[in-house]
Design a protein around this nucleic acid. Structure first.
Lengths: 337, 337
DNA sequence: CTGTTAGCGCTTTCAC
DNA sequence: GTGAAAGCGCTAACAG
């Protein structure tokens, strides 16, 4: 159904051998200028492009990066993807994106599928289920095959690979510090991701920081299902005389600011709100949300750079792995004093 | 650096020929059961998987779909991507995602790159720049090569290919109807995408609907840069005695509800708001936004289905193209009466 | 300067 | 039942 020009056809039409044509296209100094010109002319005429598959098969290199994301509707991951894509395409790499949808099984499937041999390396964040089951054999296989692998955000200590993480613990410390500094005494921490590595780290940071201060207390509110638990969240906020809320993820942050508005609390006068989010929320909430920015795009770009680095230093197979930490920053807006 | 088991190695180790091993793996009836068992055993032991590149080269089929998106930080496209991904992976296809970032040049680059021969077909929405320049040769090339191509959302009438579009015109008619029905008389239409095909259609619908009613007027407010024009938007809303706002895209919708809140208008009592958006905004705004839902995931799934259909009916090269229309729906929430 | 040859990993036809 | 050989499109070492 599909017909593309090949070297063979060019060669035939020009009465040359395939290899001469191939070399001409690369302007090989071995070939006479005249031949080179003839070849280029016909190649242009037919809009010849080398078959990427054949080149990859030959060179054992696909110039493609596999990216596995737990979710794409989450703005954080979308931004990371954007960062990766920018950096990759700048270097002539394309990316294959798979969305695991937080499923262990899909993650395994995708890793296997891409590993034969569609990609040169992987960038990924673990799915929720994988983190909970802690089954990591599919990544050990990759390591055994010497396939470069970068984990970001949701990483595992059990896999020895390059990592890019966010300083989640510090981030929530800073957030709590700010709240305390501006006079808050009773802080609610709400989260829909208490069971993820990052969720735990963020909570830890908050707890540690609070413990350093007298007269400041912290209450936790885990949320599993926003829709069904709306009432409980509401009464939680109403009954606890809270003067600040820290949302550990974008959804939680949204809920927080939304509820506060609904209950008629004045923000930030009566309640201060800080949220972990890089999304639209911060800009388009009212009042504008003070956020912990995770610099998702930078993170993506950094991960891509690390991978490209590994791919170009193909020599040393037994390298030392790195973990880079992306610093968050607290972006002050109108929802805090 | 990377070492994978090949048929050759299996053959050698089993003292069989490559072709026998290949057939055994496919449980070819020609081969004795005993041999088949031996082969499978060793293959499992080494976790053999056929090299996808070689298979593709041979079969001229990659089982990969190329997806070109103008943006990924836009929730609508993220959702479409999700829909495509779901449908594709259900059918054993993987997707290569490229983000054109609204640039014509990048779009051309990606189309060419993927067409040799990394993908079996394309699903895409035109970049803003491409629509404005109206340069479409790269798609004509695809057509000439008989590469299946599905356009969605931002499509071009000049390319004869399958399309999936949203009934944008009807959608804004319905939205305006609702506003009028609930008593609104002076409606502002704000948009950051007046210059895109979909933006134009949405505006048209609104204008047509308004023209059918006496005593109802419509004012347009184009927005180019949210950050810098905040003040103008504010004074526009203040000085025009508006009682309803229709935001033609997610950003515009966000701005609308945010501004109304800021100016102290009570929603929906004093001002009703409707926005085109599938995003978080609707759920996490205060009050919750009445939206025109574009059913982005369905759209993505539908596009993927159309493409897979074309790919399986590889026979007829001169087929008739279809345009499917995804119906929007007006989802009533708290920002309208 | 140009061409021959081998080979990347796989499938498939045709001999034996 | 099993294997040899050709070929997908390309590159590169080696001959001439």
């Amino acid at each position: 159904m599909r017909k593309k020009v090949t070297l063979k056809q060019l060669a035939k039409e020009l009465n040359l051998s395939i290899s001469t044509v191939s070399k001409s296209l690369k302007n090989d100094s071995e070939i006479s200028q005249k031949t080179i010109n003839r070849v280029h002319e016909l190649a242009n005429f037919y809009n010849y492009k080398p078959n990427a598959l054949a080149v990859s098969l030959k060179s054992n290199k696909t110039n493609t990066i596999g990216v596995l994301l737990p979710e794409i509707l989450n703005h954080f991951y979308a931004k990371v993807l954007y960062g990766i894509e920018q950096e990759a395409s700048k270097n002539g790499y394309k990316i294959v994106t798979c969305i695991t949808n937080e499923s262990y099984e899909k993650e395994v499937e995708y890793v296997e599928m891409l590993n034969y041999s569609s990609v040169d390396g992987f960038i990924l964040a673990l799915s929720k289920e994988t983190q909970m089951l802690n089954k990591l054999d599919h990544f050990k296989d990759l390591k055994r095959d010497n396939v470069p692998l970068i984990m970001f955000d949701r990483v595992s200590g059990e896999i020895d690979c390059d990592k890019v993480i966010v300083d989640d613990k510090d981030a929530s410390k800073t957030a709590i510090q700010h709240l305390i500094k501006t006079g808050c005494k009773k802080i609610a921490v709400i989260s829909t991701i208490f069971d993820l590595s990052v969720g735990k780290l963020r909570l830890e940071g908050a707890l540690e920081e609070v413990s350093l201060h007298d007269n400041v207390s912290l209450i936790q509110l885990p949320i599993n299902n926003v829709e069904t638990e709306e009432n409980e969240i509401e009464s939680f906020l109403k009954n606890n005389e809270i003067d600040a809320v820290l949302g550990l993820d974008e959804t939680a942050a949204a809920i927080a600011i939304n509820m506060a508005n609904k209950l008629g609390y004045s923000i930030p006068k009566e309640i201060s709100v800080i949220g972990f989010t890089d999304g639209l929320l911060s800009k388009h909430s009212y009042p504008k949300l003070t956020t912990v920015s995770q610099h998702a795009e930078d993170l993506g770009a950094k991960a891509a750079k690390m991978l490209l680095d590994r791919l170009s230093n193909t020599s040393d197979t037994n390298y030392q792995t790195n973990t880079e930490v992306v610093k968050t920053s607290l972006i002050l807006r109108d929802s805090t004093n």
